[in-house]
């Protein structure tokens, strides 16, 4: 979908053709869900937050001034909505998804891909939500630093430094998790 066709859809939605909005939802739902999931660490909540963000975006579509990309504007709403959900549920128990570390025999850089991803998710969960989101967006390789900064509400330079530090912190957290696993063997 080109920028022009996207603007055409937006114009149609603004003119009252509500059904056309489904095209935008279909296009951006996976990234929106990924962002919400990285912040909330819970699929059900992430789905709700992402849906709410799309509804908010729909109702504020006239406020999208087309200076930035629609996706950046939308993901910023997703990010803020997910952060609001996170604050609302701050005192609830952590989901099982973030707390369970399963048994594995491999320990030092020799994990198979499935285990690696699982431990990596546990290490990611140790970072704060902004770093986690910035890091995810960085590795998705779809976003420039300016866009990541726009979505997470930081300056581009700050985003660069935070992503850099988060990558190192992630490696350190992963090392700690693997060490703990090795001790339980």
């Amino acid at each position: 979908m080109t920028k022009e066709s996207e603007y055409c859809i937006i114009d149609k939605v603004l003119a009252g053709e509500q059904a056309v909005y489904a095209e935008l939802v279909n296009k951006y739902k996976s990234y929106a869900f990924t962002i919400a999931h990285k912040i909330l660490q819970n699929r059900q909540e992430a789905e709700e937050a992402a849906q709410d963000a799309f509804i908010k975006a729909y109702h504020h579509l006239s406020g999208f001034n087309r200076d930035s990309k629609f996706s950046t504007w939308l993901y910023r709403i997703v990010f803020n909505t997910a952060i609001t959900y996170k604050r609302k549920n701050k005192y609830q128990f952590d989901s099982i998804e973030t707390t369970v570390i399963e048994y594995s025999q491999d320990t030092d850089g020799m994990l198979d891909r499935m285990d690696q991803k699982k431990y990596l998710n546990n290490a990611l969960a140790k970072l704060n939500e902004t770093d986690r989101t910035a890091l995810t967006l960085f590795y998705l390789e779809e976003f420039s630093l300016e866009e990541i900064a726009g979505i997470t509400g930081m300056r581009a330079n700050t985003a660069k430094v935070r992503i850099h530090r988060a990558r190192i912190r992630l490696a350190d957290e992963l090392k700690i998790i693997l060490k703990q696993e090795a001790l339980t063997l």
């Binding site: 509500q18 059904a19 909005y21 489904a22 939802v25 279909n26 739902k29 996976s30 990234y31 869900f33 990924t34 999931h37 990285k38 992430a46 789905e47 992402a50 849906q51 799309f54 509804i55 729909y58 850089g109 891909r113 690696q116 991803k117 990596l120 890091l135 995810t136 590795y139 998705l140 390789e141 990558r167 190192i168 992630l170 490696a171 992963l174 090392k175």
Partner: peptide, 29 residues
């Protein structure tokens, strides 16, 4: 270590919502 993370994270982080996501959004608009 950093390369392992780099390779695991790169391009594989995209997650997909449930199949009725779009319908749910459109229903609640």
């Amino acid at each position: 270590q950093l390369q392992d993370i780099h390779l695991t994270m790169r391009g594989k982080m995209i997650e997909h919502p449930s199949k009725n996501f779009t319908q749910a959004v459109m229903r609640k608009l």
